[in-house]
Design a protein around this nucleic acid. Structure first.
Lengths: 176, 176
DNA sequence: ATTTTATGTCAGTCTTGTTGACATATCTCA
DNA sequence: TGAGATATGTCAACAAGACTGACATAAAAT
């Protein structure tokens, strides 16, 4: 946060001690992020509604499909919700045959989660929808900016979580 | 959706008729968007909690501050929620002195909304928090990519809404 | 004068998050 | 082996923030 270029006389602060200079609100990026995310998550809604599922179900089936064999604890760590919240949607996904829960072999306390054929089909259909929106946007700005967008989103994540997310996003397949 | 470069023998589809080729899921951007947005909206939470406000209050105070004199109908159009949902949070914001509602002069049915001094202070404090996260991310990727990020987010929005959002985001001040 | 529009409000429901308490099976370690 | 820690499951109550449907009022428009 170097302010070397700002002459001391102009380096004003509010009574709260917050900087005035160099803190022009990024209203464009704040609001575009809001509207873009809203449309992004709205794509899957119609399809989820056919199964009487909501967005919470989407997140679960997505991460289970992406990381077969995931445990409950892994999933809680990814989603950052309580086990009670998770259990409600997970139970429905298992009952309706989208996710399968297998008792661990080395540690029989654990439950390893896998998508069934139906679950896999749903997860990928939703991913395909969202991918289309993403590819359309990348084509609009020129696909050469893909890395910049990826790094921007990564840098928007809390520094302390970035490595965890990096592993999760860029490593495919089993977690544990 | 030209597939001219794909030999017919390789141009496979699923039983549902969906393309396989050219539709590799963009898992990285899907998941990074999810994690980035979650952290982005979490910043204001601590401050909002001090006033017993939630994210719905944030959105209202933000857009009222950005567009002084906004009417109820304008706000409903921006937020895409029902008037009952809006009314609940708006009433609290007015009662606690963050937003002021003024009867229209030309059309006395309308209510023109303005932030009070407290409302303005809150809206800008929250915008400052989110701006810091954004600027940190832009510095990480090189600020020259700001336009690419902005255009990417805009292109992620439903084509039919893009003009509406463009006006809203890039035009400052009064709406009506 | 009638209809339409802008807003306000009541009542009930749904999803998805929360906290707190407690149960069970299994693993780990002294 | 026995005690404690761990992984999961479940019950109950609650809260935020969305929804629908119905109805009320004031003011504008026709």
């Amino acid at each position: 946060m170097s302010k070397a270029a700002v002459p001391p006389a102009l380096h004003q602060t509010t009574p709260d001690g917050d900087d005035i200079l160099g803190e022009i609100p990024a209203y464009d990026l704040i609001e575009l992020f809001f509207f873009a995310y809203r449309d992004f998550v709205s794509d899957p809604d119609r399809i989820l509604a056919e199964f009487e599922f909501g967005r919470a179900h989407h997140r679960v089936v997505h991460f289970v499909d992406r990381h077969p064999g995931l445990t409950i604890a892994d999933l809680l760590d990814i989603l950052r919700i309580t086990k009670q919240s998770l259990n409600r949607v997970l139970k429905e996904l298992i009952e309706k045959g989208f996710i399968e829960s297998r008792t661990g072999t080395t540690d029989r306390r654990q439950r390893h989660l896998h998508t069934t054929q139906r679950g896999r089909a749903l997860a990928r259909q939703l991913a395909r929808l969202q991918t289309r929106r993403i590819m359309r946007a990348l084509e609009a700005i020129g696909p050469e900016h893909r890395d910049a967008v990826r790094e921007y989103l990564l840098a928007m994540i809390d520094p302390g979580d970035r490595n965890r997310v990096r592993k999760l996003v860029f490593e495919t397949g089993e977690i544990s």
